[in-house]
Amino acid sequence: MAIVETRKITKEFDGGAVKVVKDIDIKTVDGEFLVLLGPSGCGKTTLLRMIGGLEHPTSGQILIADQVVNHLPPRARQIAMVFQSYALYPHMNVKGNIAFPLKAANIDKEEQKRRVDWAAGILGIDHLLDRKPRQLSGGQRQRVALARALVREPNVFLLDEPLSNLDAQRRASARDELQRFQHEIGTTTIYVTHDQVEAMGMGHRIAVIEGGTVRQIGTPRDIYEDPADTFVATFLGSPPMNLIPRGDELIGFRPENFHLAPDGGVDSSTSLSFKLTSIREEYLGSEKLVYGELEGERTVARMAANADVPAAEGGEVTLFVDNADLRVFDRESGLRKESAPATIATGSGS
């Protein structure tokens, strides 16, 4: 168990031509489940590999358990890692793969067998122990890779999209198992994903990364409700936050914050009204999405499936958003501004 910290860590490739990670400062809490979330190619894997010691940072420090580990090789860092590509040993069977870290640690045979059986049991692969990796499906390989990481008692787990190849059902249960397991043993875990649902569901905190920098770090609720900039606002949530330009500001609100009637009846001082034109509905079973144009911007509202929208296809409808749900961003920089109700009021639609 340990705290992982990065101090201004930077990674350049090709002699500085490509900057992949830029001045990232992250500090976990002991026993935390920290999720690194970001689009493909934003540098998540590179950051994780630096923490694991597989890549040398160009500058900056990495600390594990309050010790600078920059100069330590991976095996001295007491970490367990699951690779995006699984990286199973192709010539060993599943048992051999899972036991390899234990063998390397010179743990006695009996204990090895006990731990392998335990990890295989947790991940439901006990019937595959004698197979070779090439005889396994993608999902099964992933579970073997997870088992290989679990058998040890590392300081830190580094997991690089370990569930990306499981089918939806298996992924939900694996997510649950992984979370429970992590909670039980309380080992600090850094979990990389580009799946926001996974990130929201699993993380104690989420670090949203884009273009090699941390855009925001906080609890899933913080990040969803109070995004630090327009990237975070639109990266999380599906459909993403609506952004309506007003002067040199952008007004943002979530699709589910649209209401058919103003908050508190006719009192329009606590909510803002917007007119959506040429609307189109999309029925999704438990809910429906109402698309429309709002001052020239594509906008979407999320409503209960049985909500009674008083407009026909292509028509227009007036919707309301509580003032408390509005977020204001600087149009130039995209950064969040402390909401200024005055600005919102002057820009009011109706």
Binding site: G52, L54, M81, Q84, A87
Partner: peptide, 22 residues
């Protein structure tokens, strides 16, 4: 694959173990 060598590194295998087992 580089990942396989990396995995062996992370799993705590030293030079000789990596040589003879991987």
């Amino acid at each position: 694959p580089q990942d396989v060598k990396d995995a062996a590194n992370v799993d705590g295998a030293g030079f000789w173990r990596q040589l003879f087992y991987i």
